[in-house]
Amino acid sequence: MARTIPTDTMASTRDAFATALIEAAAADPRICLLSADSLKAARATAFAEKFPDRVFEVGICEQAAVAFAAGLASAGLKPFFCTYGCFITMRACEQIRTFVAYPGLDVKFVGLNGGIYGGEREGVTHMVFEDIGILRAVPGIEIVVPADAGQTRKATLAIANRRGPVYLRIGSGRDPVIFDESVGFEFGKLRLVREYGTDAAIFANGPVLKRAIVAADKLAEQGIKTTLVEVHTIKPLDVDAIVEVLSRTGAAVTVEDHNIYGGLGSAIAEVIAERAPARLIRLGLRDVFPESGEAEQLFDHFGFGVQHICDAVRRLIMLKG
């Protein structure tokens, strides 16, 4: 079992990304940063001070930023473009698909304010709960949703060493610490976070994983033994390992800070349908627009609370019979 942090410690995924990017850029002169007036949001002013020539500020225009990044990459650079995930994946969706993913250019996207948790008080315009579904439908781009700041740092270094397009979804800067600093990050591999038993599997990623851990621990105290799995790499999906978990449990709950269409829940449903029949309950945003609010309250309000997870597991076990 991966060592997790039981307290309510917070640490910024944005700062973790920015720190890791400096580290990666020190080792690799091809790494540069695209800003759509998003240097401050990306916490990357220190990067700009350290590598002034390697920052390209295009102003508030995400579409041109992505096309510009494609131009940089075509000439041998390795640009990272960091701004709000909603503007990357929705406003510049076509530029990602046609000018980065299709030619397979080495551009990395770092989307801030992932989910309703990341967007919290900003409201719907600055949240993104469609990004994973949108990008899963695009061939040739990898997708990573790290759980917390420590994992963001390691995931940033991991994707910096990969060739080709990757989307990294991070948060607001007020992000719960989930894993102990000693926990590593292996791209493309799922992680067993709790292995209490095979009554049901719980699949989760991102900050909401914190709640899934609390739920799994609580259920275990009540004699309900789950296997809690973190799926930080959504694409490529670690299908064989997921099949193995499903074949042991025969039942799964997915918990994601995303619309229930297109994200982790859909990905697991696809594996279930094609490879490993099992009962499934998807927890996530149920195809509604959320609203502004405090992050933890939003999770409770929109159905991703600890109680929701526990209830879903119990319901599944009943359905299994």
């Binding site: 540069c32 020539d53 390697r54 390209f56 579409q63 041109a64 096309a67 510009f68 990044a69 494609a70 131009g71 940089l72 990459a73 075509s74 000439a75 041998g76 650079l77 076509e94 530029q95 046609t98 000018f99 299709y102 030619p103 397979g104």
Partner: peptide, 30 residues
């Protein structure tokens, strides 16, 4: 990716100047 000599994928209109600006900026940095 398919055609030797084609320096950039295009077809979706409007993108050439942004793509070219990135190439020119990369040339300067390199």
């Amino acid at each position: 990716k398919k055609t030797p000599g084609v320096d950039m994928t295009t077809g979706s209109l409007g993108h050439g100047i942004a793509l070219g600006a990135g190439m020119a900026a990369a040339g300067r940095l390199l």
